[in-house]
C-alpha cells in the first residue's frame, strides 16, 4: 500500500501537468477543428466540414507530397550520415567532438539563418564559386533554397540531426562492442562483415528510435520549410500556419483540421517506422 502511494504521488504531478496543459491543448484544437470556436464567432459543433474542406482542397495533395518529399529523404539521409559520424565519434571528446555537437545546441531558427547565409543564390557558397570563376551570376547558381525540390530544407534538417543520431549511436558503442570488433578483425572479418554482424546489431535499436523521433519531427516541422521554401508548394505544417495566420479568423477551424491531419500523419508514420524496424531486424539486437 505504501509503495502504491509512492507510485501515485510520484507520477501525479507530471501526469496532471501533462493532462492540464498538453491534453487541454490537443482537446481544444480538436474541438475547434470540429467547429467549436466561440471566441472567433464560430459555433457549429459538431461538423466534419473543415476536415472535408482540407481533404477536398486541391492544395492538400500538393502539400502532402511536399511534406513527404521533405521529411522522408531528410530522415533517411540524416540517419545514414548520423550513423557514420556516430561510429567515428571519439571515445574522448576533444575539440572536434565539442564542435560537432554545435548543431544540437542551437535552435532550428539559427540553422535557418545559416542556411540562408550559405545556400542562397547570393550566399557564401555561390560567392566562393564566383571567386573561383565557376559562376557568372547568382541566377546561374542551382536553386537549393526555394527550388523545385526542397534541398535546402532537407540539408538544414539533416545538419541539425546528424549529431543527434551520432550521439545516440556513440552512446551504444560500449567498450564491449569495441572489444568484439577487435576480435572480429583478428578473425579476418571484412569491414562490411564487421559492420553487419558486430556493429549493426548493437546500434540498430538506437538508429530506429532516433529515426522515429526525427521522422515525426520532420513531418510536422514548421520553421524550416516556412522560412526556407519560398516556392509555391507549401508543406502541411506551413499550410496550417498560413490558415491560422490569415486575417480571416473564420479559417481557424481549418487550421486546426490541418494540424490534426498532420498530427495523425506524424503518429502513423512513427508507428509504421517502429513496426518496420522490428520486422526487418527481428533477430538482431540483444
Amino acid at each position: 500500500m505504501k509503495r502504491r502511494a509512492r507510485v501515485v504521488l510520484g507520477l501525479a504531478p507530471a501526469l496532471a501537468t501533462l493532462a492540464l496543459v498538453f491534453g487541454s491543448a490537443l482537446f481544444g484544437s480538436l474541438l475547434q477543428s470540429l467547429g467549436h470556436a466561440p471566441h472567433v464567432g464560430i459555433e457549429e459543433f459538431p461538423t466534419l466540414r473543415h476536415y472535408r474542406d482540407v481533404f477536398t482542397d486541391p492544395a492538400t495533395p500538393v502539400a502532402l507530397a511536399r511534406t513527404l518529399l521533405t521529411a522522408l529523404p531528410a530522415t533517411l539521409i540524416g540517419s545514414i550520415l548520423g550513423v557514420a559520424v556516430g561510429l567515428a565519434w571519439p571515445a574522448r571528446r576533444g575539440l572536434a567532438g565539442a564542435l560537432a555537437q554545435l548543431p544540437l545546441l542551437v535552435p532550428y531558427v539559427v540553422a535557418v539563418a545559416l542556411a540562408t547565409l550559405w545556400l542562397a543564390p547570393s550566399g557564401v557558397v555561390s560567392r566562393t564559386l564566383a571567386a573561383s570563376g565557376l559562376l557568372e551570376s547568382p541566377q546561374a547558381f542551382p536553386r537549393i533554397l526555394d527550388g523545385a525540390a526542397p534541398w535546402g530544407v532537407i540539408a538544414t534538417l539533416v545538419w541539425k540531426q546528424i549529431p543527434f543520431t551520432a550521439l545516440l549511436v556513440a552512446s551504444l558503442r560500449s567498450g564491449a562492442d569495441r572489444l568484439l570488433d577487435d576480435v572480429a578483425v583478428v578473425f579476418g572479418a571484412s569491414r562490411f562483415q564487421r559492420f553487419r554482424y558486430v556493429t549493426w546489431p548493437s546500434i540498430w535499436p538506437a538508429v530506429v528510435a532516433g529515426a522515429v523521433i526525427t521522422l515525426a519531427y520532420n513531418l510536422g516541422a514548421l520553421e524550416v520549410p516556412l522560412l526556407l521554401d519560398g516556392g509555391t508548394r507549401d508543406t502541411l505544417a506551413v499550410r496550417a500556419w498560413r490558415a491560422y495566420a490569415d486575417a480571416d479568423v473564420a479559417r481557424r477551424p481549418e487550421a486546426m483540421a490541418f494540424a490534426w491531419s498532420m498530427t495523425a500523419l506524424a503518429l502513423l508514420a512513427a508507428a509504421a517506422l517502429l513496426a518496420l524496424g522490428r520486422r526487418v531486424f527481428p533477430g538482431d539486437g540483444r
Binding site: 536553386r143 526555394d146 527550388g147 523545385a148 519560398g230 516556392g231 509555391t232
Partner: peptide
Amino acid sequence: GSPVYPPTAPA
C-alpha cells in the same frame, strides 16, 4: 519550372 515568390517585401 519552380518559380520563386518571396513571402514578404523585405525578402
